[in-house]
Nucleic acid binder design. Structure first.
Lengths: 229, 229
DNA sequence: AGCAACTGATGATATATATCAATATATTAC
DNA sequence: GTAATATATTGATATATATCATCAGTTGCT
């Protein structure tokens, strides 16, 4: 497919670390990217496959998840425009250690990892910024692990809802892009339990769970549920 | 305290990423390190404190753990000589997002993070190696999270025992440096449950749990318990 | 329109795991 | 060496959560 975005230099979305590149380096990236369009449900990155590319999410939403034993998935997070999807595997065994699937329609740029390798070596500020990005993701995973381990179901659901509200949509009211099953995959709960907790939260007036959306009514209470575990 | 190790250049332990430094850069590190000795139980790194230093573990063993609500800890892993303890917080909010405590007597070198920052910017190969090290740790945490979420108690204990055997001691028979409580903090189990599972494994001839040590008798069976969950 | 497949919802039941209470054993202190 | 303190062990019980069975909507397909 021909690239439709004019140039990285004028990319309206923009990746944080790319800010540290010179315009020459930007051109280098631009010459080595490949746009792709994905329909909802399609796989952008498959766990286990060689991680030869980073993926820059231009538009749409995707989910990053780990496939465990064929059946059980664990959703690590939702990716929104501007996200640089660059698995840790790229720096270790060159295999993707998670899958990524489109939730909505997605436009993304593939950028060869050799491009990154080159930029890391030649541009220290870029390398440092990349370390920062990777560190932030690693911290998120670590925090998630502790939450899953120590918090009970209501706390975990609260965390997921606040994650969607704060980090993804930036709004107290958002479209529910995840099925109950997927919310369960994110909070390590059976889908039936997700349903029950959401109902309880609705009954106690913390949220309003509309047909296809969620509205956080009492954000303080929700945050308290998160804290108390 | 005066440094007792002659020079990083001839450090018998050696940190992986430091291999990419020139001898001049090595001298720079050497001039900016501070040795410290810790007794068992002493804190090397405190969660929440400013992360102004990396820590190079020269000798001894320590545990890295997250403190949750005062009481509940989660042990992320054991650090052995050669380990570079450099929290993700160093690249983000400059706060340690975990604590580190000595298990045995520990000798370690503090290296200011500004030293790292400088080396990352000036030496691309070093930066890349650091990205690799951080990625590996991040992967470990991710795998741990999935295990904790999807595996049942026997599988989680098996994982912890194989981790100690394979990654820390490199032997089927090793001193049990963690209390049952700590093994529980690592596998997200109550200490009583740890005791029970270990007894069951001993009864079925998979391990021998001596007074202060563990011997893996049937490593295949243990690995099967790990796989089956 | 109508069948198939999926998602959501709900109650009943099963199970894994935590908590509690009590004792035994080891480790440290004086 | 004995008291004191921490850790290990064990059984009984409580609780959180998963699983099962069922039904009601929804969406998609032809």
């Amino acid at each position: 497919m021909k690239n439709t975005i004019e140039s990285c230099l004028h990319c309206p979305v923009g990746c944080k670390s790319f800010r540290y590149l010179t315009s020459g380096e930007m051109d280098f990236v631009n010459d080595n990217r490949y746009e792709a369009l994905f329909r909802p449900g399609e796989i952008l990155v498959k766990q286990g496959s060689p991680s030869s590319n980073a993926l820059f999410l231009f538009s749409g939403l995707s989910k990053t998840y780990v496939e465990n034993n064929g059946s059980k998935n664990m959703i690590l997070g939702i990716d929104k425009p501007g996200e640089l999807i660059l698995g840790q595997g790229a720096f270790t065994e060159m295999r993707n250690n998670f899958s990524v699937a489109a939730i909505t329609s997605v436009k993304a740029c593939f950028i060869g990892f050799d491009v990154f390798r080159h930029l890391i070596r030649s541009n220290g500020a870029f390398a440092e910024s990349l370390l920062e990005e990777m560190s932030m993701k690693s911290q998120l995973i670590q925090n998630r692990m502790v939450s899953l381990a120590h918090k009970k179901m209501p706390g975990r659901i609260a965390e997921a809802l606040l994650y969607l509200s704060d980090s993804i949509f930036g709004s107290h009211s958002f479209e529910m892009i995840l099925s109950r099953q997927e919310l369960g995959d994110m909070t390590n709960m059976a889908k039936e339990c997700v349903v029950r907790i959401l109902r309880e939260m609705e009954e106690s007036g913390v949220i309003k769970s509309d047909s296809s959306g969620i509205r956080i009514l009492d954000s303080d209470k929700l945050r308290m549920i998160l804290e108390k575990g």
